[in-house]
Simulated assay, not measured.
Amino acid sequence: MPTTPEMSMDMTTVGDTGLLDALQHEVALFARRAEQTRLGGVAQVRNSMDRAAYLLLNRLDQEGPMGVKALAASMGIDSSTVTRQVAPLVDTGLVKRTSHPEDGRAVVLQLSSRGLARLAEVRSSRRRLMAELTHDWAPEEREVFCSLLTRFNHALSTRQTSPGAAPAEAAPAAEPGRTA
């Protein structure tokens, strides 16, 4: 009989039903609240940014100019999704399309100076929000939370890219302050 991820689960989790229920509930609440506020930061309306836009701008900032296919691959999403999501960013001047330096026929996406400024503004506001929400946390608690959230996101990403696979090994923690 084939095994599923549920069947291959460590048996110690069987007794953790209440904890797992609480965890899934807290994740659901977090997802809803994060989407409601878009984690816009302290001045939410002014500094709010669509999740897809933030992630695309952030990736272009971290990895530099790239084509749609490379951007899609680095984000683990479909090229058509990137094309659809980047269109309004180009229309609003946050991203610009340029010719590939080695192949003039290919198009490369890159942050415009306006996009970089807007991203910096949103990051700063979100950083202030994170400071406000965790003002009474010890620095070590912030680091542990960031490490565990990074590990959780990595596990979700791994599961999404290989749905039939067994649960992944723990991912190394991201550098504190590094965003996804």
Rank of each mutant, 00 (worst) to 15 (best):
E6T: 10
P163F: 14
L156K: 02
C146G: 08
R127H: 13
R84H: 08
M66L: 09
E140F: 03
A180E: 06
Q160F: 14
A138V: 04
S99A: 13
Q44K: 08
D16W: 02
R84K: 11
P176E: 09
M130K: 05
D136V: 14
S79P: 08
D10G: 05
G177P: 06
S112P: 03
R84W: 04
S157V: 13
G164P: 02
I77N: 03
A28S: 15
A180W: 11
L129C: 03
A165Q: 12
L156M: 08
L133N: 04
P2F: 15
Q36H: 12
S125V: 00
H25N: 10
A53Q: 06
H154Q: 15
D10I: 03
R84G: 02
G64E: 12
S124M: 12
G40D: 09
R38D: 15
F30N: 14
T150A: 10
Q160A: 14
R127F: 09
E26I: 09
M11H: 12
R105I: 09
T179A: 10
G164Q: 13
M1E: 12
G67I: 02
P172T: 09
Y54C: 06
E102K: 10
S157G: 11
E143H: 05
R84P: 01
D50E: 13
V82L: 06
R178P: 06
G93L: 06
T81H: 13
A166L: 04
V95S: 04
M7V: 14
N153H: 15
L23N: 03
M7N: 13
Q62M: 12
A52F: 08
E121C: 08
V45W: 12
A22K: 03
T83N: 08
H25Y: 06
M130G: 10
P176S: 09
V144L: 14
L55W: 03
R38Q: 15
T37W: 10
S162L: 08
L56K: 00
G64F: 08
E121P: 02
P172M: 09
A72P: 06
Q44Y: 06
R127Y: 10
L19C: 12
T17Q: 15
G15S: 07
